[in-house]
Amino acid sequence: MEISIAKANVQELQPLRDLFLHENKIEFVYNKCHLYGWADTYAFTIDNVITGYGAVWGKDKREDRDTIFEFYMIEAFRKYANLVFKKFKEACGATFIECQSNDVLLFSLLCEHAQNIHAGAILFEDSFQTNFYHPQLLFEKNKTPGSHPDDRSYILKLHGETVAAGGLMLNYNKPYADIYYEVKENHRRKGYGSFMLQLLKQEAYAIQRVPAARCHIKNNISKAALLKAGFKTCGFMLTGEIKKEA
Rank of each mutant, 00 (worst) to 15 (best):
H159F: 14
L158G: 01
Y172P: 01
R65Y: 15
R209D: 06
I155W: 06
K218Q: 09
K228N: 14
H22P: 00
A164N: 00
F28C: 06
R65F: 14
N131F: 14
A165Q: 13
D40P: 07
Q115P: 03
F77Y: 15
P135N: 01
V84D: 00
R17T: 12
V10D: 12
M1K: 08
Y192R: 00
G166R: 08
N186W: 05
E2N: 13
C92K: 01
G54F: 08
A225G: 09
Y80E: 08
T239M: 07
I46M: 12
A91C: 07
M73C: 09
D150E: 12
L123G: 11
L109A: 02
L168G: 08
N173T: 08
L16H: 10
K232F: 02
F77S: 11
F28A: 03
R209Y: 05
I46T: 04
D18C: 04
L158W: 01
Y172F: 13
A246Y: 15
E125M: 05
Q115R: 13
L158F: 06
T41P: 07
I26H: 02
V163I: 14
G54L: 11
S108P: 07
Q129D: 15
C111Q: 13
A39W: 01
G191L: 08
E140F: 02
N9P: 10
H216S: 02
K61E: 13
A6D: 13
L105G: 08
E245F: 15
A164V: 05
N102K: 05
C33F: 11
V104I: 09
I217S: 02
I50P: 01
F88N: 03
N220R: 09
L16K: 11
I3F: 15
A206Q: 12
Y53S: 02
G191C: 09
M1D: 00
V104W: 09
N171H: 10
A204T: 01
F124G: 03
R189C: 09
F195V: 04
N219F: 00
N171T: 00
A121E: 13
Y154H: 03
C234E: 04
E182Q: 08
E140R: 12
F71V: 07
E75H: 14
M1N: 07
D178C: 02
F231P: 02
K25L: 04
E241I: 10
E98P: 00
N102V: 01
N102M: 02
A43E: 11
V49E: 05
S4N: 13
Q14E: 13
D150Q: 10
V56E: 11
E112K: 13
I242W: 14
H113S: 01
D103W: 04
K7V: 10
I207G: 01
F128D: 13
K59A: 06
